[in-house]
Design a protein around this nucleic acid. Structure first.
Lengths: 218, 218
DNA sequence: TGAAATAATAAGGTCAACCATAACATTTTA
DNA sequence: TAAAATGTTATGGTTGACCTTATTATTTCA
């Protein structure tokens, strides 16, 4: 019952899928985009993952993690987010960079290191970006929040998590104080998919819809 | 002047060479052995490293690190040994396993993580196996000890470092209490390259010459 | 409903780091 | 000094994860 040792690439695909989907199927195009590979490559890789029983691919409908795939992904997320905690809380590394730095470490982390790290950190339940950290068995309660772009004008909400992974995006949000715990009021939503105008920390901030999607609130 | 980002394989070759040589050239056969690749593969790889200016290969004479190669190797050793300290002191991981576990992490460690880790650990000067940790610039004072197999019968010495990297070897030594700081008396050296008989912690211990080579003393 | 967007499949290519086998060169040592 | 050991070079092969270009299938939406 030892983990079958997944490749770094496989881990990235599974983790990315877990990060993207509430539960629904992920479009291969989106997946390719997040992984910075071509759709053709993603397709090829997904086929292999399907053969290994890690995902289910229904042509033209998208990809879903199987139970096995979800377990593997939880494991990766656990490592990822534990390292984020370590890098942020103990090494004092810049918030916007912890995702990418933790990502490299994550793939190189043996199970016993993961567990020792969890213990060392005091079994934290959330990473500095606000996302829950799966426990040793892979279980965790998903956040019950909504993306900021779905909030009605006038509402005031609290940021639960920031789901972005790209350093530049994280830095952009950080600079505008859009961080877990922050209270945000939606002042205006421009028409034609235009940006939101938010009140954050007393300041007015414009935020594009695609960025707002990364901000989980309530 | 950013590090040119070496591949994991390149890092392993450089690190292994640094671990093996006091200063003399390393025979390709030995290198291949330590890296668990065939001599043909090692040859091929060494040619590439030579082209990159990281090593100098004199046919039939062996391989030496260039200045550039030595700097890169120091950097790798620094990361490796800092992680060893973390795994041992903070995560309480078994002594014999820290080398291999740190080795995986090492390749995935960005410069800023290395420096933040060093600071977190209080800039330690030696890893739990006793080896010196290069500083940020790559400088360190090599141990001035000798391998245990070169000690005359009757001498009592102190273990400075254990230079082995293979978990099974480390565990074997650990079980016999041959660890940094330990006092050891050489009671007998069997003829024909036979094992040494040692007095360790009041007990008599037999140790093969090839294992004794890993134990740096004085 | 038909065009545009997206997805799938096929064919062929690259790159790093390995592998094996075989022939040949040099060094060591008995 | 000759045989054994070790090192070198050549050739060709594999694997994983990408890539491009091109064709075909399906879905979405105007």
């Amino acid at each position: 019952m030892t983990a079958p040792q997944l490749s770094e690439s496989t881990e990235m695909y599974l983790k990315t899928m877990a990060e993207m989907s509430g539960r629904e199927a992920v479009a291969i195009g989106r997946l390719a985009e997040r992984l910075s590979v071509t759709p053709v490559s993603a397709n090829e890789m997904v086929r292999k993952l399907d053969e290994q029983g890690l995902v289910t691919h229904i042509p033209y409908k998208g990809v879903t993690l199987t139970r096995k795939g979800r377990e593997a992904a939880s494991n990766v997320l656990r490592r990822q987010r534990l390292w984020e905690v370590f890098l942020y809380d103990h090494l004092k590394i810049e918030w916007a960079r912890i995702y990418e730095l933790a990502c490299s470490l994550e793939h190189a982390t043996a199970p016993e290191v993961t567990e020792a790290l969890a213990k060392f950190l005091g079994n934290p339940t959330n990473c500095p970006r606000g996302n829950p950290i799966p426990d040793e068995k892979g279980t965790f309660t998903p956040l019950n929040g909504v993306a900021l772009n779905e909030i009605a004008v006038g509402q005031e909400v609290t940021v639960l998590a920031v789901n972005a992974t790209v350093t530049d995006v994280l830095r952009y949000l950080q600079e505008r104080n859009i961080l877990p715990g922050q209270k945000i009021k939606v002042l205006e939503a421009a028409p034609l998919q235009g940006p939101l105008t938010l009140q954050v920390d007393g300041k007015e901030v414009a935020l594009g819809l695609s960025l707002a999607e990364f901000v989980i609130v309530e």
